[in-house]
Design a protein around this nucleic acid. Structure first.
Length: 815
RNA sequence: GUCGGCGUGGCGGAAUGGCAGACGCGCCAGCCUUAGGAGCUGGUGCCCGAAAGGGCGUGGAGGUUCAAAUCCUCUCGCCGACACCA
């Protein structure tokens, strides 16, 4: 140990646990429902409880925490809750791997571990409001919401093709099918089975889910585009094509290009289309059956691949094009999907790439009906653009967009077709043949059919034994709630995305035993003011939550129609070029960081490392830089006399410059925190620290200006490095967060830019400086300057080689 | 293929029409020191120059503007999402 007096350093290992304990004892982040303060709902996506956390997980929690702390200091009543998306497959996998381990135990153990790490990072949540989706007091209300959907006609049962493992006798998720085989039995081919499944009618809300996106102007553009594409609304027409030789029979097709109807040279039915058998002639029957059988076996993924050549078979049957009475051959091909539109299309090879490819392969006729600019002679590829109609009888000469409307009018008046809107969004299949989920609360009664479990009998609790519900007769045997007959419970559980579609409402009244949420409290806290989480949820979770919110609004239980006012997707943390993950073995453990550089350093570093929406690479050297910064702040605040003054500062910072820097920092840091631009906020704090150091080294007095700089520095840094800041407050003999240290306000008098200066330079020689009133925009200020006598004189008829607009604050900061 | 995003020093990145490279890392030189992965000072885009100073510079090519990393057109490269939706 050195005997020379050391500069003091703070020891995170000592002060961090100390403050974490104090915060917990004082319930610092508990949200009060009846507070007169304006509310701020700061939410991070609740995670799947995966156990020990690393710094990859920490990034968005630190962002959420920093914002919560700032908003609290700004006088908001902050709701910053946390919970666990606790149902799901990983728990079942763990249970299968370790016989005797129950998914619930595994899950709750993981939660305890994760929770410890969050606390170790100094993240403050209102733990009184913690929700855990796998607990009966939560899933009871998930079940209640299902019943609400059922009551409102939004839940229904229908047959759907599913992946079935014949050995496990269960349905598999798409992710569990590997090369057409069961993930747990690599020798066993997965079967496609049509099974009765539960669906939610999200398509009823397609228009509203799409149209309301426009109002979400504080969502990333990217997410709105993704949702728009996912919903995929298209405008077109349905048209009936009579089947030749089968009077009264017709095939309905859907097209977005009714203006190309005269170019239909064949028709294609999806293999599953109900009329395939009927229109097929005897001669073609065997081949068609074989093709249909083959198509059924293929997975969705194989079928939808564009890489693949299109295949199909002729049925021998013909349809009549209602526009011109022409007989066109009917084909069956798997590039037409039974689940979209009407499951049948008219093929217009001249104006559709896919039809063109198919026509070429099977030598089917191609007839151009839209003139392509600069093209004559036979088309070498499909022309999908707009143009003037040709070969289209009475509609020749019309522009395609006009023809679209005229032909639709004609179809409607002739009664053979109508305008139609279609979506690519499908209804939401929510039943899962899994144990670890919320049981779907219905009973099958031989007399009364599907009977919802009465709300006062909820929850339908999971049986204690971990075993498929369909193999637990003691559990599923029950009586009909209506007539008391012997009945059977639904043995499917719900998709975990249902759990997460409403958890943000439960936080408003987490212990309510009479309802899923107290409408009054939910209306008080909603909408979420800031929602932060990974972009991987850009579609599913965010779309489902929007759907649930709208349904609850329609049911009169919620005022808002959108749950999340502002959305932010943080980037991922990488190390050694890979995303930090337990499986990759490259995670920086929170426990270890905490015992070495400290949680504060980790927090500040992770915010400083790069733009919050970008992926960033963790590196130790950068972390050490932040450690140095925090230690420097510690010395500036607590022992400024230790700052070496011998060298003297070359740039003398006087009190005026210091004051100005302080005011500027308050303004910029506040603004950047609000926009979650933490990387630049940290840079501004470092600049302030640099200026303060220059001030001391230039012999600046430790007077009121200095004290105010110190106070501002600690306050602004507090949301990111709360432990060390609280410790500094205490050592200065002042109150910190616990006493609601107010957030500094940008002092308008100093902040305002009273003037700007234009520096005019001609040929690098002639210079002039001109002060311009503020109130003028930059462009106007420059124009005014260029028009002024003073500048005109300096220019002497030449044009300026350089005009620089310098805001006053910069001129004063940079001598 | 379609849609979206991004290209700036040795590195992470600032600057969203107004001093390009803030802030940090790294590196160079020096200081201090019972020596140390500590602290302090100065330097650090590239080229010419002893310096003063000058020239060039935000993937590339054009354009708009007094002024462009920023806006527009084309182009090259990387990343992401969707992917036969008729």
């Amino acid at each position: 140990m050195a005997s020379r007096p050391r500069r003091s350093q703070y020891l995170p290992q000592e002060i961090e646990p100390k403050w974490q304990k104090i915060w917990e004892e004082h319930g610092v982040m508990k949200a009060s429902d009846g507070s007169p303060k304006p509310k701020f709902y700061d939410l991070v996506m609740y995670p799947y409880p995966s156990g020990e956390l690393h710094m990859g997980h920490a990034r968005n929690y630190v962002m959420g925490d920093a914002l919560a702390r700032m908003k609290r200091m700004q006088g908001f009543e902050v709701l910053h809750p946390f919970g666990w998306d606790a149902f799901g497959l990983p728990a079942e996998n763990a249970a299968m791997k370790h016989p005797g381990l129950h998914p619930e135990k595994w899950t709750l153990d993981n939660i305890a571990e994760s929770k410890r790490d969050l606390k170790m990072m100094g993240i403050l949540y209102d733990w009184d409001r913690e929700v855990t989706s796998c607990m009966p007091d939560y899933y009871r209300w998930t079940q209640w919401l299902f019943l609400l959907m059922l009551e409102r006609g939004l839940a229904y049962r229908a047959k759907a093709p599913v992946n079935w493992c014949p050995v496990d006798k269960t349905v598999l998720a798409n992710e569990q099918v590997i090369n057409g085989r069961c993930w747990r039995h690599p020798d066993v081919e997965v079967e496609k089975r049509d099974l009765e499944q539960w669906f939610l009618r999200i398509t009823d809300y397609a228009d509203r889910l799409l149209d309301d996106l426009a109002a979400l102007d504080r969502w990333p553009q990217k997410v709105r585009v993704m949702q728009t594409n996912w919903i995929g609304r298209s405008m077109g027409a349905e048209v009936d094509f009579p089947v030749d030789g089968l009077p009264g029979e017709s095939v309905r097709i859907y097209t977005t290009r009714p203006d190309t109807l005269f170019g239909a040279t064949f028709m294609v039915l999806a293999p599953e289309h109900p009329l395939v058998e009927k229109v097929t002639t005897e001669k073609h029957r065997a081949r068609v059956r074989k093709y249909v059988e083959q198509a059924r076996k293929e997975t969705e993924i194989e079928r939808l691949s564009t890489e693949r050549d299109k295949t199909g078979v002729g049925t021998g049957g013909f349809a009549i094009n209602p526009m011109n009475g022409e007989k066109i051959p009917m084909w069956v091909a798997d590039y037409v999907l039974v689940t979209y539109g009407t499951g049948a299309i008219m093929a217009v090879p001249a104006h559709d790439e896919r039809d063109f490819e198919f026509a070429q392969r099977y030598d089917l006729p191609i007839r151009q009906v839209i003139s392509a600019p600069g093209e004559n002679g036979p088309l070498r590829q499909a022309y999908e653009g707009p143009g003037v109609l040709v070969n289209s009888g009475p509609f020749n000469g019309l522009e395609s967009s006009v023809a679209f409307e005229k032909i639709c009018d004609w179809l409607e008046s002739a009664g053979i077709g109508k305008r139609s809107v279609k979506y690519r969004l499908r209804d939401w299949l929510i039943s899962r043949q899994r144990y670890w989920g919320a049981p779907i609360p219905v009973v099958y009664c031989p007399t009364h059919g599907i009977v919802p479990v009465p709300a006062d009998q909820l929850p339908v609790e999971l049986p204690p034994e971990y075993k498929p519900l369909s193999e637990q007769p003691d559990w599923y045997r029950t009586t009909c709630p209506i007539g008391g007959e012997e009945a059977r419970r639904e043995t499917d559980t719900m998709d975990t995305f249902i759990d997460s579609s409403w958890y943000f409402l439960r936080y408003a009244s987490p212990h309510d035993e009479r309802s899923a949420f107290d409408p009054e409290l939910a209306n008080h806290w909603m909408a979420v003011d800031q929602y932060t989480g990974g972009v991987e949820h850009a579609i599913l979770h965010l779309l489902y939550s929007r759907f649930f919110t709208k349904v609850l609004h329609d049911a009169g239980l919620l005022e808002v129609t959108e749950p999340f006012a502002r959305l932010f997707n943080q980037g991922m943390v990488k190390r050694f070029g890979q995303v930090m993950a337990k499986s990759a073995g490259n995670g920086v453990s929170i426990a270890q960081l905490s015992s070495e550089q400290g949680a504060d350093a980790g927090r500040v570093y992770e915010m400083f490392i790069g733009p919050p929406e970008e992926d960033v690479e963790w590196n130790e050297a950068g972390l050490n830089g932040v450690v140095k910064f925090l230690q420097r702040v510690w010395r500036l605040v607590l022992e400024p006399e230790s700052i070496d003054m011998e060298a003297g500062a070359v740039v003398a910072v006087d009190a005026g410059v210091l004051r100005r820097r302080v005011a500027q920092t308050v303004g910029r840091v506040t603004e950047h925190y609000d926009e979650l631009r933490f990387n630049t906020a940290v840079a501004f704090l470092m600049e302030l620290a640099n200026t303060m150091q220059d001030y001391l080294q230039g012999g600046g007095a430790r007077d009121a200006d200095w004290d105010s700089a110190v106070r501002v520095l600690i306050t602004l840094l507090d949301p990111l490095a709360p432990h060390v800041c609280e410790e500094m407050w205490e050592r200065l003999g002042e109150k910190g967060l616990l006493a609601d240290a107010p957030w500094p306000v940008f002092e308008a008098a100093v902040a305002a830019e009273p003037k700007v200066t234009l520096v005019v330079q001609v040929a690098g020689k002639v210079r002039d400086r001109l002060e311009v009133d503020t109130g003028l925009s930059e462009g106007d200020a420059v124009a005014a300057a260029l028009a002024s006598q003073k500048v005109r004189g300096a220019l002497d008829g030449r044009s300026p080689s350089k005009v620089v607009y310098v805001p006053d604050r910069l001129i004063n900061l940079v001598p």
